[in-house]
Design a protein around this nucleic acid. Sequence first.
DNA 1: CAATTTTTTAACGTATACATTAATAAATTT
DNA 2: AAATTTATTAATGTATACGTTAAAAAATTG
Lengths: 224, 224
Amino acid sequence: MSVEAKSKSHSIRAVNALRALIFAGELPPGSDHLESELAKKLGMSRTPVREATLVLESQGLLEVRPRKGVRISALSADDMREIYEVLTELESLAASLAADAHYSEQELSRLKSATLEMEASVAANDRESWARADAAFHDELVRLGGNKRIQTIVSNFNDQVRRARALTLHMRPMPQKSNEDHRALYEAIAKGDSKAAREIHWRHRTEAKDMLINLLNQHGLRRV
Amino acid sequence: MSVEAKSKSHSIRAVNALRALIFAGELPPGSDHLESELAKKLGMSRTPVREATLVLESQGLLEVRPRKGVRISALSADDMREIYEVLTELESLAASLAADAHYSEQELSRLKSATLEMEASVAANDRESWARADAAFHDELVRLGGNKRIQTIVSNFNDQVRRARALTLHMRPMPQKSNEDHRALYEAIAKGDSKAAREIHWRHRTEAKDMLINLLNQHGLRRV
DNA sequence: CAATTTTTTAACGTATACATTAATAAATTT
DNA sequence: AAATTTATTAATGTATACGTTAAAAAATTG
């Protein structure tokens, strides 16, 4: 039995299933879908589907447009800039908080191992594996920050830009510089230097934002 | 006919009505309420009420606890710290963005008038009026930042700490220093000095956070 | 034929009936 | 009487019926 099928309610299963369909590109950005279609596709009635769409709308993944169906969100370069501005700021805060927490090496081990994985991935020229380690690094960073609100917001926003990241992953040069940033950030956190941690990550994210937006523009990806 | 009654759907009216009941303290923090009770109170069926509770849950105002009713969120001092950390960071970013936008005096007029109102309120020893002007100032600041995502998050978080602010409004000394901060921030934005704008507002919010948390602790307000 | 009005259609919003299931109470056992 | 099992209750989760209403299609008018 799949994980989804174990979920208590159809409503929760609908949220997970719709997210999965969106991330898989089966419900592409900008496309419209009637409640009844989605209900049929998910094998349930409209009620739990409606509830799921409200939740996903509040997370910015789609928009409920009465009588026109739900529209899967399509982000412009400007939307991307807005989201990255917030991600930059909140992750930098998390980095600063993590440094102030004075974690032991033991407690920072997952952060460390993510940096090692990234370095190995770059050496092996494996972008997919690098992207997974990069995501793990950022997740762990935010977790170490210890602020649950930041975790929730960052998680939502990462969902929203997931497609754009996937699209541009193979357009980028191998992230050599990025790995140096991660290592420097790790050191700052281990030393408890919150000011440095904040600044290193802020620059790191700002550069990533500019890179992403330039790539989208260069490749004529108006909305993703 | 009231504004709420004009709203298209019962579902939207339920969201507004429940928010109003929460802010008015009629649904106090920590209290539980069955869907059917709320439906009866709002004069509609459970369906739109359920939809409203899902929306409000995603905004952090309540928690849906199956078979135990919805529980109105009660924030601890630590929750408050988390929320203020995020508010501090995002409003500071908004201040920085506003400065970078190089607005004209005309465009900054509402920000200016809010500072004047605050000064008049302090002179008149009128805390309620000061609080309204302060809220207007912060709203306008975030609006001038121009980032819609920041506006949404800040608005949600302000809703969550609204009760705590109201509770502590009359425990505070008259906000003399606060007005000086606002004036300095206005000047920094008018000059286009984004670094100063960010730092001034960051300190301002950090001090407000410490003040609020101290007041809650001193007065034994464990959860609000 | 264009513009307007009327009619039709169908998607949504809501109420309601019912199935499900967690929590409680009652009964039974030890 | 305590512990366990069984039965009951009631709140939720879901499906469905139906009224409402926006959009589309058809009919009418100028």
